[in-house]
Design a protein around this nucleic acid. Sequence first.
DNA 1: AGTGCAGTTGACTTT
DNA 2: TAAAGTCAACTGCAC
Length: 503
Amino acid sequence: MQIVWLKRDLRLHDNRALARAAQHGDVLPLYVVEPELWRQPDHAGRHWAFVSESLSELRADLARAGQPLVVRTGDVIDVFEQLHADHTLKALWSHEETGNDWTFQRDKRVAAWCRDKGIVWHELQNHGVQRRLRTRDGWAKSWDQFMAEPITKAPAMRPLQIDPGTLPSARDLGLAPDPCDFRQPGGRQAGTDLLNTFLTERGETNRTAMSSPLAGAHACSRISPHLAWGTLSVREAAQATWARQRELKAQGCNTKWRASLRSYTGRLHWHCHFIQKLEDEPRIEFENLHRGYDGIRPSAPDQERLTPWARGETGLPFVDACMRSLRATGWLNFRMRAMVMATASYHLWLDWRAPGLELARLFTDYEPGIHWSQTQMQSGTTGINTIRIYNPVKQGHDQDPTGAFVRRWVPELAAIPDAHLQEPWTAENARDVLGKAYPNPIIDHLSAAKQARQRIWAVRGTDAFRAQANSIQAKHGSRKSGNPNRGRRPTAKKQAQLSLPLD
DNA sequence: AGTGCAGTTGACTTT
DNA sequence: TAAAGTCAACTGCAC
């Protein structure tokens, strides 16, 4: 009996673990619901809801291929023990997982158990991330090669005599209620629909619209949760994008489309690029990548700052709108993710760990490698990236010029005129609203930014700091972007006015 | 028509 | 994927 252990690869198509296992005999496709994983502080009800929907659909897809998904709940070793006793396992198949520390330790236990029982565990590369990578040189080329390999088809499977098991509810798992009215639905069908509509309809304005929190909701692919939980493979997304690019080229160019898709393929690279950092250095889930920043922020979070930030009650309208929108939709565009994290780390001077966990629980597409790499980058603790302190008022003006986004999510500001919406404390009628329906800002954002900049540069200026930064660059830096200290100039800013979106 | 000048723009630097 | 500051070139306008 070959076990295919599905984790963050909840698909039948382009699932090599499944395809390879099927060449060796009867296959038992297994998902183990691990209650302890779902109790980890980076996991939340919305993740389980997405996974649960995806598992139901996968179960039906697998049933059509011959053997429905088998679901067991409990510690994975106990589950394997039982299955081994009942069915005599020959081999275990799965994809390599670059997860959080909990799944890393669990995988070590699984490896030890397999060794002990003489069961071979075949772990296959899941996307562009390479295990035991020695150097970043040549990484992008390997990525291209991996993504160009043929997509594997769903194997035919012989039905087994085995109880398929049931999916527990969020309540069964003891998950706290996690309301998310506009969460993206799970399941592969939703994923392929998104990919198709993005590549044929929604993607044309991607490059210019992605930075707007409202227009971006429509013009971004939105496949991120599907990549995170594996209902789509990165290879499928890459090949579909390449095919569409060839089609557009053959049709004679539509420059807008082609610019958007060029930029999009770059993002698919970045997806794996960031996960690779956690793969190479798992400690970045917990520790500053550059140790020069150790101790500059209080390690225990100031709840008087963390809580209003997380709830969207800081009194900074654009930041609050972003956090409330995120809570309700499970998604935020890339730029706004960077802004809310930077606000926590710089303006509120919170250590990144607690706000990082808040965001992990709020992103339906939580992908540990991307998340912790980005969290550190946006908090300035990598040592190799430019410090980016966002001005939440300026971002509000730039990315939400009509104020539609803020008005949608912060209705308490209805009485504030458009001209003062991003900084309501400057409005004539401020006293009618602030400190009543809507809070006064919990910090003065200009002086807070200034203070943060001074504190950061006090650390950054030293020789010892630069020496460590150089070795980090050698290990983790993108070869394409080169040395970030030799800053390339940003090109002139385009302020595209965007069509009205839905959120 | 050339000059002086305030205000603007854009490239580049610094934090 | 930032923002603020600096500086020089440029622009429009009055005289």
